[in-house]
């Protein structure tokens, strides 16, 4: 296992790897966004991921979420844990089968370096952002808004407002005929994951 671990990380930049191994990232939601963010951050070797969700996997989820047919009916956080361990068993994964709210956000995500918002419902997104900004005004939160449909790559962008970052096109509503589809959801999720890396590494560099 030790030899595998060494090889697993052999392509990682030796200056970057220790920063990532010492980082903790929170992911609120393990659907299309959250499962893709988690897979990318596990592959890249982020040391610890804290992931929450309260849903079970249903067949339509497989159109865009990082799960398998035989995992239908399982709790998303448990299935994701299995998958992450199969991808990178050398990081730590803490899962919570809970609905995040004002009452538990600090307890669960209080120690993360960065929080990734990966909910589906707009009201939940708002609640998470406002709760986070009130409690941790300086800690980054990376939100996704506007990712339904297909094409329109050029519309997807990042907006920064202090420590709040928004990824997406900020306009594509989910409605009949415009559902979240794997490529565009994964593009936005990986934009979130890519921004996580940028912020983790920038912060470390500025601290020397």
């Amino acid at each position: 296992m030790e030899e595998l671990e060494k090889q697993f990380f052999s392509k990682h930049d030796p200056k970057i790897l220790p920063v990532l191994r010492n980082s903790v990232v929170g992911i609120a939601g393990a659907g299309g966004l959250g499962s893709s963010v988690a897979v990318s951050l596990a592959r890249v070797g982020v040391g610890k991921l804290i992931i929450t969700d309260f849903d079970k996997i249903e067949p339509p989820d497989l159109n865009r979420q990082q799960y398998f047919v035989e995992q239908i009916g399982k709790l998303k956080v448990e299935a994701l844990l299995e998958n992450l361990k199969r991808i990178n068993p050398f990081s730590e994964y803490k899962i919570h089968n809970v609905k995040i709210g004002e009452n538990n956000i600090s307890e669960i995500f209080g120690k993360v370096d960065i929080l990734v918002e990966a909910f589906d419902e707009a009201g939940m997104k708002k609640m998470l952002i406002e709760s986070w900004i009130c409690r941790f005004p300086k800690k980054p939160i990376i939100v996704a808004s506007g990712l339904a449909g297909f094409g329109k790559n050029e519309k997807i962008h990042i907006r920064k407002i202090g420590s709040l970052y928004i990824c997406g096109d900020e306009e594509s509503e989910v409605k009949i005929g415009i559902s979240p589809m794997a490529p565009r959801v994964a593009v936005v999720a990986n934009m979130q994951a890519n921004l996580v890396l940028e912020l983790l590494l920038k912060e470390k560099n500025s601290n020397g």
Partner: peptide, 10 residues
């Protein structure tokens, strides 16, 4: 002033 429009989907 920044207004962020939150859209369902994830």
């Amino acid at each position: 002033v920044q207004v962020i429009h939150l859209i369902a989907g994830g």
